[in-house]
Structure formats: C-alpha cells, structure tokens
C-alpha cells in the first residue's frame, strides 16, 4: 500500500512536469527587441503562440523582432516655435516637442519577413532640448500605448494566414 502511494505520488509528479513541458505549444522562436524594458516581451511570451519564444536561441530560423522608433516631428509649428524659444534661452525654457512613436512587430523565417504589423501614434513631450534621452525605459504614457499594440499584434498574428502556414510547415517537418 505504501509503495502504491509512493508510486502514485511519483507518477503525479511526472505528469505535472510533463504537463508543464507540453504547455509550451508555441514555435521555437528567437525574440529580439529594441523596446526598453521587459513588459512587451513578458506579455508576448504569455501568449500560447509565443510561449516557446526565447531571447537566447541563436540557431532558430524563426525570429520575432519588435522594433521601436521615436521620430521627432520638427515640421510641427508648435515644436518649432518652442524649440526656438528653448534654444534662445539656452535650454532654460523647455520645448514642447511632438514625436511619432512607431512600433513594428515582424516575424522572419531564415531572414525573410513573413508577417509585419506596424503601429504609429503621436505624443507630445515637454523636454529640455539639450537633455539626452533615457534609453533604458519608456515614458509611462508611451509604454501604456505600446502594450495596447502588443495586444493588437497578438490578435492579428493569430489570424495571419502566413503564420498559420508556418506552424503547419513546422509540424510537417518537426512535429511529433
């Protein structure tokens, strides 16, 4: 009876380990991002399609790349005027800068882009024009918007024909 109990406990343990492993149903994807912080990566990796994505997977032919770009819009009259004032006052007066934030989610297979989702939004920022940008973190307002784009990307990629074909091809050659 004791042995039976030990056996049952052991098999339960094995099953739970197996369940945890098999939960990783996504493709083995290498994750690469220029977005400061881990919030986007963590959100993506919680999704069943990407729960097998890793940053350290140098040999994987499948890559998910998330690129964030910040472009200052100096053609905006407000940015120009306040920028001029800020420059005249040697930076004592702050400038109201308008900038476009662009985020692109792209899936590559052996260097070929198969799906590409791009989102842009304009933000206004009050800053000293001579101050450097803190590249280690995002402004909370921008981060909040970025995370909404992650949701949109995940829902779009799930429906993408190209991504479904990739999953099918992976299963054909490497599925169990």
């Amino acid at each position: 009876m004791r042995h039976l109990l030990i056996g049952l406990t052991f098999s339960c343990f094995c099953l739970s380990v197996y369940a945890k492993e098999s939960e990783k149903s996504g493709l083995p994807i290498r994750y690469f991002s220029t977005v400061p912080g881990d919030a986007v990566m963590e959100k993506i990796m919680l999704h069943p399609k990407f729960n097998n994505a890793q940053e350290e997977l140098p040999g994987s032919p499948i890559v998910l790349r998330v690129v964030l770009e910040q472009r200052q819009d100096v053609n905006n009259p407000a940015s120009f005027t306040t920028g001029l004032l800020a420059a005249t006052s040697l930076g004592i007066l702050p400038a109201v800068m308008s900038e476009d934030i662009l985020i692109r989610y792209e899936v590559f297979v052996n260097g070929n882009s198969i799906v590409d989702f791009e989102f842009t939004e304009s933000f206004t920022e009050v800053k000293n024009i001579f101050a450097g940008r803190d590249s280690s973190k995002l402004d909370p307002e921008i981060e909040q918007w970025v995370l909404t784009t992650t949701d949109q990307f995940l829902s779009s990629v799930e429906k993408s024909k190209e991504f479904k074909e990739l999953e099918k091809e992976y299963d054909f050659y490497f599925g169990s």
Binding site: Q72, V74, N75, G83, L84, A87, T88, L90, I129
Partner: peptide
C-alpha cells in the same frame, strides 16, 4: 543663433 542651436541639437526631422 537659435536656429543654429536647434540644428546642433539634432532636430533635423
């Protein structure tokens, strides 16, 4: 001078 400084601050756009 201000325009020059704006230029130097890298706001080419």
């Amino acid at each position: 001078a201000s325009l020059l400084m704006l230029g130097l601050s890298g706001c080419a756009g």
